[in-house]
Nucleic acid binder design. Sequence first.
DNA 1: CGGGTCTATGACACCGGTTTCCTTGCCCGC
DNA 2: GCGGGCAAGGAAACCGGTGTCATAGACCCG
Lengths: 365, 365
Amino acid sequence: MKKTTKLAPAPKAALPAASEPRRRPTINDVARLANVSKKTVSRVINQSPFVNKETRKRIDAVIAELGYAPDPVARGLASRRSYLVGLIYDNPNPQHVIDTQQGILDIIRGSGLELVVHPCNRRDKDFLPGVRGFIDRQKLAGVILPSSVSEDEELVALLRDSDTPYVRIASVLLDNEENSIVTHDREGARQAAEHLAGLGHKTIAHVSGPDTFRSSHERRAGFMEGLKAAGLSLDKKLDLRGAYTFQSGVDAGRKLMGQAMKPTAVFCGNDEMAAGVCQAIRETGLDIAKDVSVVGFDDSPLASRMWPALTTVLLPVKATGRMASVRLLGDRLTKEPLEEDSHGEVHPRLVVRASTGPVRPAYGA
Amino acid sequence: MKKTTKLAPAPKAALPAASEPRRRPTINDVARLANVSKKTVSRVINQSPFVNKETRKRIDAVIAELGYAPDPVARGLASRRSYLVGLIYDNPNPQHVIDTQQGILDIIRGSGLELVVHPCNRRDKDFLPGVRGFIDRQKLAGVILPSSVSEDEELVALLRDSDTPYVRIASVLLDNEENSIVTHDREGARQAAEHLAGLGHKTIAHVSGPDTFRSSHERRAGFMEGLKAAGLSLDKKLDLRGAYTFQSGVDAGRKLMGQAMKPTAVFCGNDEMAAGVCQAIRETGLDIAKDVSVVGFDDSPLASRMWPALTTVLLPVKATGRMASVRLLGDRLTKEPLEEDSHGEVHPRLVVRASTGPVRPAYGA
DNA sequence: CGGGTCTATGACACCGGTTTCCTTGCCCGC
DNA sequence: GCGGGCAAGGAAACCGGTGTCATAGACCCG
């Protein structure tokens, strides 16, 4: 149906009406067939209340018949809001990233939104410019900030004045409840301490995460709380700092097992380091659980696949991603958000497996 | 500088020229300041050769001064090609997904392209419609198909006639060399077999992946080749099928260790299953390596964190993602693609760790 | 019965680029 | 001296929607 009005100079080689390349229908097609203006079609698409029932029905019929779907790019241009939600993260645990991602995808599936992943490095000098470029080029529908970046106030400021909606995921409430999901890591660590104390351990070590993460502090603080509640305290020699990596766990473990005051139990800031500590323990010929109990944090896949399986604190990362998405997009979602996802608070939970056991009288202090 | 030509009815409340909300500069701003038409600016942006050196220089200067960057959404609308590259995958191993993703991101970083991740489920009845919607709504710059979906001919057909560029990653060459990355899983499996045979093992079992993945067949075939070369063969009782999951590995391992003909070594289709097999072996009180050797495939993080660390076949997934991106985007990338990334072939490599050892005479057949 | 409010709809500019097509010099060969 | 080819650049339509504003009719109220 190309209009050949203005005395067109016959299209190049006259392919004998070569079966129309099958263009996607546009809003104009719909408007024409429904005999309304495109603006009214637009109203129907955007669920404006000011459309007559009959008209709406007619338009819906045409839409269905044509299999029309609005072009997100065009919509984005006109409305200055793309249909993309961004996930910005700073490397950390790949498993963590993928779980968050999966949670978000669970929620936006079928809503017409898509997920754009944008890793970055907070230590890069052009970290902020990079993210800024991303943000204001892509006019995102919203951004989700997992814990690896949620504490970066500069980044948040950027989002705020670019006027992009965002949700922060963090171990404590950082600002507004409206745009935060709180994971309460502290509670989980406390449970870990109570578990170990309950098994009779008194000489308990801690390998915390890097200083730059709020979660490290929270986990450590929760652990201390738990110890205190059990009438215990943390000896300086048993208080080590790692980097959330396997290797740092190995190093910490070696240090712990190499010194005079050996712990009968170790609580680690995450599972990676716990696995490292386990390796160090084994290197000294000791047994996990029987000689030294180990507790991790995260319940990563590693935890359940290790031998012995790791006692750890389960942090439901995927659910957190879902919650964050609901918080961010609430209204735009077709399907009702699950009750579960509506309150913005996540509580960790201890999962007891085989890496912890009662303190061994002969060995302990 | 809003033009207030047509006797405008003074803007609502006359905010005293409230410090201009700082709009992003557009191509029009650039054109005006450089004293050219927007088309010429467009030519500069798109590196058209037909622009006078002087003119180009002037425009570049204005662009730099303004900090102008073209709006990808507008460009997308006009050129019918967004600046998004899509990664479509069907669940599999999260680690695999994240590595691929990381590889792609390595390449597109700084190119103005962004990565959209789109998981799907090939067993869903609306799998194809779903992907189709994604594809032709988003007019992607390109799509990368990792092995979990690269074999789906219907999907590929879809891409082909939606005329979206794509690259398939697979264990064997599926069609055109132009748009494929081949990982040669077979070679890796062969190495695994040779390694075990070299250690004196004769009763070797295999736990393969699900039938629906080409990689399962390739790995199994490679393993058989290796055995054959060593004058060995695979007994039916030692030839099990798993599902690439940890649990399926546990099940397979129990079956193997519960039967009369026990293997002295097991080669598994991936690391997850290998970890499962290890668990099953331990349950029977036997030792990994000393009693039964185990080899995995992938070199996932799990492999190096297990105890004993798993001998496995390293498949450089991230590098594969990089290659795929270069294949897909070649020209559009600013930085020169690394030599490494240019040939489209990936070769796995055996990594020997602690889970394999010489056959134990007393125990073996 | 005039005027005000509310519903339903359309006209038209606009979002920020690209595409198509056209013009203008300028150089070249004959 | 002139047609032709090519480099350089511009005007206007266009991509497929949304925003702003105008308008027509229905209804309501004093």
